[in-house]
Amino acid sequence: MKSAVLLVTLFFVGASAQLKCPHPPSQWCTSWEIAKACQVEEQCLDYNNRKDIKKNNEQNVNVELYYECLCGGCREFLVLQLYPTFLMLHDIMNITLVPYGNAEEKNVSGKWEYVCQHGPEECYGNTIEACLVHLLQDIRSYFPVIDCMEMSPNVTGALEPCLQAHEPELPVKTVLDCVNGDLGNKLVHANAQRTQALVPPHQYVPWIVINGKHDDDLQSRAQKALFNLVCELYKGSKPDACTGKDLTPLKRESVCLN
């Protein structure tokens, strides 16, 4: 029912485009090509994000990570805390990865251009990871690839071997076509909007939001022992992994200031 309401909304948003669109509204968000042809790309990106969130268990602990791919503190949290916790507690948590961080964007002749804290290579890597999330859809597919990249000495250079190790059916060319094309540009813009809409506004990365909330205490506890925090906050029947299980806390809390 909610999907039908959204499609009606999309219909009115793209009414003028729909006159030229050969596809019915029910198909507008089924592929990037159709969304682009009907000029509802941004609406469909938002729709797919909301759909992924709603389909998850409402009792699950929601963890949103706002980060940038070359930030040392971001990589440390993702590799040492978030991914190991995901491996053990994926049934009771929902994870949202938003690669953008402290970047800045501006619209130049209808296309978004980005300046990233750690240079053009970081903008490239952020786009790669945004494309992986979009192309693979399922976090069980894209998170191992992103973790593999983030734990590598050369994050962007690790794309091909990490795909081969975890998702060999996804061609590198498909990812790069996304990265270098209109789709990748719009995906990063969507992440920029999501980051800019944070309340309170982010002051550094990694910026961690737990169940829709960010404060210093949650941030500190997540960076020290995310596993413990997720087990504590989950209101359903605790999984076996939460009984007496712990992760080694980080020795320090690293951030990249905005």
Results as ranks from 00 to 15, higher is better:
Leu218Gly: 10
Ala190Gln: 04
Val199Asn: 13
Ala192Leu: 15
Ala197Asp: 01
Ala190Glu: 03
Gln196Thr: 15
Ile210Val: 10
His202Cys: 06
Ile208Cys: 06
Pro200Ile: 05
Ala197Asn: 01
Tyr204Ile: 00
Gln193Gly: 10
Gly212Tyr: 11
Val209Cys: 09
Ala197Val: 00
Asp215Ser: 09
Asn185Gly: 04
Val188Lys: 07
Pro206Lys: 01
Ala192Asp: 06
Lys186Gln: 09
Tyr204Arg: 01
Trp207Gly: 05
Leu187Trp: 07
Pro200Trp: 12
Pro200Asp: 08
Lys213Thr: 15
Val188Cys: 02
Lys186Arg: 13
Asp216Arg: 08
Asn185Ala: 11
Lys186Trp: 06
His189Trp: 03
Lys213Val: 15
Arg221Ile: 08
Ile208Arg: 08
Ala197Thr: 01
Asn185Arg: 13
Trp207Tyr: 13
Ser220Pro: 06
Ile208Lys: 04
Trp207Asn: 04
Ile210Gln: 06
His189Val: 05
Val188Glu: 10
Asp216Ala: 15
Asn185Glu: 05
Ile208Val: 09
Asn211Cys: 09
Leu187His: 10
Val205Ala: 07
Pro200Cys: 08
Arg221Phe: 04
Ile208Glu: 07
Lys213His: 11
Thr195Ala: 02
Val188Ala: 02
Gln219Glu: 15
Asp216Ile: 06
Lys186Ile: 03
Gln196Met: 15
Ser220Ala: 13
Asn191Glu: 01
Ala197Cys: 01
Trp207Cys: 03
Pro200Lys: 12
Asp216Gln: 15
Gln203Lys: 07
Val188His: 04
His214Glu: 02
His202Arg: 13
Arg194Leu: 13
Tyr204Leu: 04
Asp216Trp: 12
Gln193Asp: 05
Gln203Asn: 04
Tyr204Thr: 02
Val209Asp: 09
Ala192Ser: 07
Asn211Gly: 12
Gln196Trp: 15
His214Gln: 06
Ile208His: 05
Asp217Met: 14
Val209Ile: 15
Tyr204Ala: 04
Arg194Asn: 10
Asp215Lys: 05
Pro206Arg: 01
Gln219Leu: 14
Leu218Trp: 11
Val209Tyr: 09
His214Met: 00
Ala192Thr: 07
His214Phe: 03
His202Asp: 13
Pro206Trp: 01
Thr195His: 05
Val188Gln: 06
Thr195Pro: 02
Gln196Leu: 15
Ala192Met: 15
Asn211Asp: 13
Ala197Arg: 00
Arg221Val: 12
Gln203Pro: 00
Asp217Ile: 12
Pro201Met: 00
Asn185Tyr: 00
Val209Gln: 08
Asp215Leu: 07
Gln196Pro: 15
His202Lys: 07
Asn191Ile: 00
Val188Pro: 00
Tyr204Gln: 03
Gly212Glu: 08
Lys186Ala: 14
Ile208Trp: 05
Trp207Asp: 02
Lys186Ser: 11
Ser220Thr: 14
Thr195Leu: 01
Trp207Val: 01
Leu218Lys: 10
Asn191Trp: 02
Pro201Asn: 01
Lys213Trp: 09
Ala192Gly: 08
Asn211Glu: 05
Ala190Ser: 02
Asp216Leu: 12
Val199Pro: 01
Leu198His: 07
Ala192Asn: 10
Leu198Cys: 12
Arg194Ile: 10
Val199Ser: 14
Pro200His: 11
Ala192Val: 14
Thr195Glu: 04
Asn211Trp: 10
Gly212Val: 10
Tyr204Ser: 01
Gln196His: 15
Leu187Thr: 06
Ala197Gly: 00
